[in-house]
Write a protein that binds this DNA or RNA. Sequence first.
DNA 1: GTCTACATCTGTC
DNA 2: CTAACGGACAGATGTAGAC
Length: 416
Amino acid sequence: MFFLFDCDNFFVSCERIFRPDLKNRPVIVLSSNDGCVVSRSYEAKAIPIAMGAPYFKIEKVFRAAGGTALSSNFELYSDISRRLMSLLRQECGGIRIYSVDEAFASLPDDTDHFRFALHIRNRILKEIGIPVSIGIAPTKTLCKIASSLAKSKTFDKIEILTPGQSLQTVLKNFEVKDVWGVGRRIAPKLNFLGIFTALELSSAPLKMIRQTFGINLEKTAMELNGIPCQDATTEETARSITVSRSFEREISNIGQLEAIIAGFTDTACRRLRAQNAAAREIAVFLKTNRFKNPVGQSGGSFLIPLGGPCIHTGHFITAAKFGLRQIFTPGEAYKSAGVTLQAIEEISSLQSSLFEKSILPPKEQKLMQVFDNVNNRLGAHTVFFAAQTVSPQNFTRGSFRSPAYTTSWDALPVVH
DNA sequence: GTCTACATCTGTC
DNA sequence: CTAACGGACAGATGTAGAC
């Protein structure tokens, strides 16, 4: 059986650990630039505040209801997430992290599933302070449904789904648009074909589903029938690493963009090395404001090969700047930009190719190791590349950010 | 025509 | 006073150019 551990209102729950005064009150967390609502307490959902709503549109009604809005504090959330995942790893063995607040695990049939789930739920609540819902089922797609049922419970928040009559009833009452893997484009098409519920999708002819929608939806349909198509509770290294931001104000200055791109490249490379991995490509992209000009969106992306696996921030910055110049149009005002590292491999499994130049020169490895060590020990930007002359604070907004409670001594509140 | 590389789209949290 | 709409990931798909 698969288990899905899914935190309730994760970002809001993280904030509440250090702000007990926010309990039982409407609280939301905003995306960067305080743009959109990305996490809502139950009280905020009840107002109602929609997921993804632009803050400026709901601010009035939210404040009138006595709500508290916070800027997102990813340093805090990822630290809480790390603790949570290591607890799960300790309890379940191998886990598959699906997002900051979600992980799958697989457990033998002879365990008492409910009892085990309850044990973990209580441990996380007590030791980390976050409420989690747990969905248990023979496939991951059914786990998703189980966990959404668990969330609507008021007590225990654990749901087990096993094939049989009761599962049929659950699927019959579950809208197909809410099934994992069915999004805003596929749902209407399914509806057009007379498929409105998860049960109808599970009993549709597999061949037709495959021909019309592709292999992924076929797998989804099979998983609804209890046939696992996605295995894997094993951890894997990332296939790609992206760092991107939208800016508070639009930017048309190439020099400024270069510095920002260099900064993105630096954080991407640090994440790359933290996984003991190397990348062979970096892609750069620019975007104009899609809300100002919904048609004729300009910008674009450019992919640059490094000529072999690479871990050296300097090489990536040089490549990224080159890529930026390929897509930059003078006079254009850009609203967001980013870089992504691709063709990633674990360093341990690197094979040297006859046609590639020297694989990871030892000097470079040593240099980056020292670079990372200094920054890890003495603080994030103790040493940095000269190309990177701006910090994110200079071009993004976050007016209501909470302190770095778990990662900085200075941020701890003084208790008298 | 078919293959390949690439940008873009789709879906998820 | 006005304007103000995320970020990260995987994987599929559409298409222009190469063969």
